[in-house]
Design a protein around this nucleic acid. Structure first.
Lengths: 329, 329
DNA sequence: ATGAAAGCGCTAACAC
DNA sequence: GTGTTAGCGCTTTCAT
């Protein structure tokens, strides 16, 4: 079923059929109806590939995440997909498997069949990012690079609140479990340092750890080897891993040790005790990234804009409590 | 950068350049090298959209999952993506948001720009499925329909093992928490019924529930209103929701109540107590689905094949234990 | 082994 | 408002 078949059946030219599907008002109601009828009978819909070639744009967006098996990535993926669909775009998704190396090749391959690309916390180099930006419009999530539009989840303030929260609970020695190097960890770690420094609380740092449950399990024993009474983990998975191992070693949370995570993935509210965590605006960030991308596609010059910053928020649950007397003694 | 630019620079015809990229051996080593050099200098790569139009195939695969924020879907997505990439295909992913209605529209839209489609646990009607199969080759995961290739995660045996496991622990009254209707729930529920029937254990059923944590929280109180000492939940999320609510009500797991989940999502090993669950071969299923699809694309007639069945496996952890004496008295 | 030419299905000037 | 005519960038017969 091609546009010609429909044209023949409706007794019009292919161009008119095309118009009916692209700018219906440029066609008389009467012929429009005839064309629609013919199209229906033939079960015709425009061939998207041919359309893409003729128009010079595809109607597709691309998204690359570090690892879609991570809950946080899944949330972003869902948000981007949702927003893209609302705006009439389909979505290509790829997972870079955390390999900075493959990431740019995947991205380059994808770049040629989409109108724009959203990169979530990309680990490729600045140079690779710039080369990619030459192929297709880019929007970055949680990564900054001059001249490329970005949306950042601003976790600094909330991370500071987490430390203040622990301070208020009487904790006098903290430890931060670092995640993989990158924008997210840098912001979190820095806020941890600054706030604990400002409050005069001794604060150690361990890691970096993979952002996984099993890394958290491993980290737990390292934490217990210190005299800290509270731990701030790079993300919820690590935090939950710590909690799990502590339970096995008979250390109570929060009575003996308080734990704070990051991301507020669905996991955080499902574990026992429920995890105090910094909620990141992942859904909003996904939507914002798509908006930014569409602005670019519409021709707005977005490259000079300052990154969109979305605030994070400390969610206090049951994994943090008053410092144990023994710990402070 | 089009194929013409490269041709001009290398002093050959566009056809030769095309050959270099599609069937290199049909070209002299010498001219091949000249062409490659020209292509490199011009940073040329073939335009995938134009290529798709000319070839009549896209090199893309599509995947539709009910909800990618569900861990189980994320695992399938990752597996399909991985396997597709290994075979040189890119992947479109869409989330139907569990709306059977939208699902077929999304699928139809996607069908025209991919060479084949994998549908994970689709909820659309048989008729819609058949219509879709007319547009693009289909492979189903966890859904059966005559003439359409499928891969099924065979959970019946393992579900039976779960009931036997509970029987062996002395449980004399069970309850099943049903999930949304569909292939997965049907198989699980049926195995639950048959095995408990065979063993002569009273077995009630509650639900259907959404396959979510919060539905599990709600279900917990319904379970406590019965005199069952063990519960088999449709999936891990529900199981964890139950466990969470029980903890709040002071009911101990597994001392007072045993819990079994399904899927063995990463969640299962992260909660306290660790969840006994039926592990589904999600990764293998995703890979198998892609294989089946590629067989179809290669022209193998796959429609008459019997569905690929992948076995599930009961993973015993800490959420199941001996029935409490009070429960049996 | 290479080139010329037609065409994949559609859109977009440009005429009428 | 509608038709005619060129392409979009590539692949693929068919010649040579």
């Amino acid at each position: 079923m091609t546009i010609r078949d429909v044209a023949a059946r409706a007794g019009v030219s292919p161009a008119t059929v095309s118009r009916v599907f692209t700018q219906p008002h440029a066609v008389t109601l009467q012929t429009r109806q005839r064309v629609m009828a013919a199209a229906d009978e033939l079960r015709y819909t425009p061939h998207p590939v041919a359309r893409s070639l003729a128009r010079g744009r595809t109607g597709n967006l691309g998204l690359i995440v570090p690892d879609m098996a991570i809950a946080f990535s899944a949330v972003i993926t869902k948000a981007v997909q949702h927003q893209a669909r609302r705006d009439g775009y389909a979505l290509f998704v790829a997972d870079s498997d955390d390999q900075a190396q493959g990431e740019d090749r995947i991205a380059a391959a994808m770049a040629k069949q989409v109108d724009g690309l959203v990169l979530s916390a990309p680990s490729m180099s600045d140079r690779q990012l710039r080369e990619l930006a030459d192929i297709a419009p880019l929007v970055l999530i949680n990564r900054e690079l001059d001249g490329i539009p970005a949306v950042l989840m601003q976790a600094t303030d909330a991370a500071g609140h987490a430390v203040e929260h622990l301070d208020a609970l009487g904790h006098r020695e903290l430890v931060y479990l670092a995640g993989p190097s990158g924008y997210s960890n840098a912001m979190r770690q820095q806020a941890f340092r600054e706030t604990s420094g400002r409050l005069g609380i001794p604060a150690a740092e361990l890691g970096p750890f993979e952002p996984t449950f099993s890394a958290g399990v491993r980290a737990a024993d390292l934490v217990l080897a210190t005299s800290a009474t509270a731990v701030v983990a790079y993300n919820d998975e690590i935090a939950v891993g710590v909690a799990n191992r502590l339970a096995d070693r008979g250390v109570r949370v929060p009575e003996d040790l308080s734990i704070v995570g990051f991301d507020d993935t669905s996991l955080a509210a499902m574990v026992t005790p429920r995890l105090t965590t910094v909620r990141l605006p992942a859904t909003a960030a996904g939507a914002a990234a798509v908006h930014l991308l569409l602005d670019t596609l519409r021709g707005d010059d977005v490259s000079g804009r300052t990154p969109v910053e979305l605030p994070a928020e400390l969610i206090v649950r049951s994994s943090t409590g008053p410092a144990s007397r023994t710990g402070t003694t």
